[in-house]
Nucleic acid binder design. Structure first.
Length: 113
DNA sequence: CGGCTGACTTACC
DNA sequence: CGGTAAGCCAGCC
């Protein structure tokens, strides 16, 4: 049951509930890969669009989007989040309101993957 | 094997 | 709160 690092990251990404957001570093942590925030970003960037990943629920540690305000990516992310009820203000999301706080059950489930 | 890269993070000023 | 610098570490030539 040893999945590769990027498989773990993908599994973790799929665990993010709709309407919640998480940071790159947080995903890496939950995937059991502390300090690999950049790897999470690389996975998302390289991931083909055919694979359905909730990349729009992933932000920087500050809650800011990973993209430049006004970019096509940022606009798309803002729209996708809006559809889930997540409010993006000034290119950033309030982590205190929408930040994902995994429950113990979520973590235990993740450990099985 | 070694150097470069980056959808990151933290510390400082 | 914005801007800079340095740390970080796997992945990819």
């Amino acid at each position: 049951m040893s999945l590769s690092a990027h498989q773990k990251i993908i599994n973790t990404l799929l665990c993010i509930p709709a309407g919640k957001v998480a940071s790159y570093g947080q995903i890496a942590d939950l995937a059991g890969l502390p300090g690999r925030a950049r790897l999470v970003g690389k996975i998302l960037r390289d991931a083909p669009s055919e694979i359905k990943l909730p990349w729009h629920r992933v932000l920087r540690s500050s809650g800011r989007l990973a993209f430049e305000s006004g970019s096509a990516q940022a606009n798309l992310q803002r729209d996708l989040l809006a559809e889930e009820g997540v409010e993006v203000i000034g290119n950033k999301v309030s982590l205190s309101h929408y930040g994902w706080q995994p429950s113990l059950a979520d973590i235990l489930f993740q450990l099985e993957q």
